[in-house]
């Protein structure tokens, strides 16, 4: 199971990103553990500079925009 974190201060793009990941995972029937991280200090410690940012199992895979579906699918592989 993949541990996925979405980092963001709670803006619309960040919520959209989390929803898109959840939806895509459900479609592909992949089990994931999704957490939304909005604590400032935690965002800084993750090394995130632009939000929304996504980490998979602790590795930063995307930052700065809502990813497209294709990119999200690559998170799971």
């Amino acid at each position: 199971m993949k541990n996925i974190n979405v980092y963001g201060s709670g803006c619309k793009n960040c919520t959209n990103t989390a929803e898109l990941i959840e939806k895509t995972a459900k479609q592909l029937q992949i089990e994931i553990k999704l957490s939304k991280v909005s604590d400032l200090q935690a965002i800084m410690e993750a090394g995130v500079v632009s939000t929304p940012a996504v980490t998979v199992d602790g590795k930063l895979v995307h930052a700065g925009s809502v990813p497209d579906v294709q990119t999200v699918k690559e998170f799971f592989s």
Binding site: G8, K12, C14, L40, M44, V49, T51
Partner: peptide
Amino acid sequence: PFCSCSSIPLFMGFVS
């Protein structure tokens, strides 16, 4: 280019 909602993480990222 960056989304204005990124100002805070950007600020912290520069400081760190």
